[in-house]
Write a protein that binds this DNA or RNA. Structure first.
Lengths: 181, 181
DNA sequence: TTGGATTTGTTGATTTTTTAACAAAATCCT
DNA sequence: AGGATTTTGTTAAAAAATCAACAAATCCAA
């Protein structure tokens, strides 16, 4: 892809996230974003139809990155999946600014829901692949585990990551072992 | 000027200076600069004919900035010129990375000469404007003072600015007062 | 509520940058 | 020295970003 596209989108998204750390999503203007990104206002409309579309794509890009770190279809035997989990927590650590601001910012209820949905999809792929056919119970299990996982992550991020990624994986792992996953 | 020009030139010059901090001027390639600046190689040729031209313009931009801080034609009565000097030292502090690397890098004898020339021009304007017509002696005086000034600055920068700008101005000022300037 | 100011979304003409290709020159290596 | 690789400088065509101008929508204060 053309170099300029990457640079421009990066500048826009970085400016956008920076502004979200300062004020509510609704009161951010396209003008501000363009100014902060040092980009012509019209350029933003070449990539995003809308302020909401910008938010959507911004979320999508980051969640794609996040779930690329723990691929549901990948080799997730019990041994390496602990590694995957560590990589995910480390990724969150590196991009803490984004996740923290988007979880904190008022007016973005969408994000937590999207995160939960992706977690559920990831889990259901993984569980259904591994055999057991008690479908109704699986649905409950998925909802239960996904909520728990997202909740822990949300707590960890918004509380400034009080424990290092490595420790979080250990804690999390012990909790999961209680459910023979 | 078009926004893109600023961004591109900044990226190129920043990459160039960054590389000069790592290796000799002569062994820096246009390819490296383009890579580090994240710019197409051809783009560099749209702005600079040459690696040497890039160096020239890079030096020119910075020296113009430097001597904009102590304008020779400006209001340089004995009172405010101490302020001007302070602003110059503070400017040097802010851009220490550039001036330090370009003074340290082997293969750039040009820079010190250019700096000395600009200092001499600045001084001669200032002195000739203020009257005295003993021209031959003035030439010596200019060479003397310019060399002294550039020498002090060079020492200050390459020795990691061991004293703050404010102190340097005081020291410098005292030295100048011995010559009734 | 009205009127002025700001923001929004769109457009067309222009400029800049990119990509990919090329031959010539320089550099490296054995 | 000689052959392979890298670097250099240039080019044409395509893509992206800029600027400036617009009407419509929103916001805000008097």
């Amino acid at each position: 892809m053309d170099r300029r596209i990457h640079k421009t989108r990066n500048a826009i998204i970085e400016a956008f996230v920076g502004l979200m750390a300062e004020k509510n999503f609704e009161q951010i203007t396209i003008n501000e974003i363009a100014d902060k990104a040092n980009v012509n206002r019209g350029t933003i409309y070449l990539h995003y139809v809308d302020k909401h579309d910008l938010l959507e794509q911004c979320i999508e890009i980051h969640l794609d990155q996040l779930f690329q770190k723990c691929p549901p279809g990948g080799d997730t035997d019990n041994f390496s999946s602990k590694d995957l989990m560590l990589r995910m927590f480390e990724y969150l650590e590196q991009h803490a600014f984004f996740y923290s601001t988007i979880l904190t910012n008022k007016g973005i209820p969408a994000f937590r829901k999207r995160l939960l949905d992706m977690a559920k999809n990831s889990l259901s792929e993984q569980i259904n692949k591994s055999g057991s056919n008690q479908n109704i119970q699986n649905e409950v299990l998925i909802q239960f585990l996904a909520s728990a996982g997202v909740g822990v992550i949300e707590w960890w991020i918004t509380n400034s990551m009080p424990y290092p990624a490595k420790d979080m994986v250990e804690e999390f792992w012990q909790l999961l072992e209680r459910f023979q996953i």
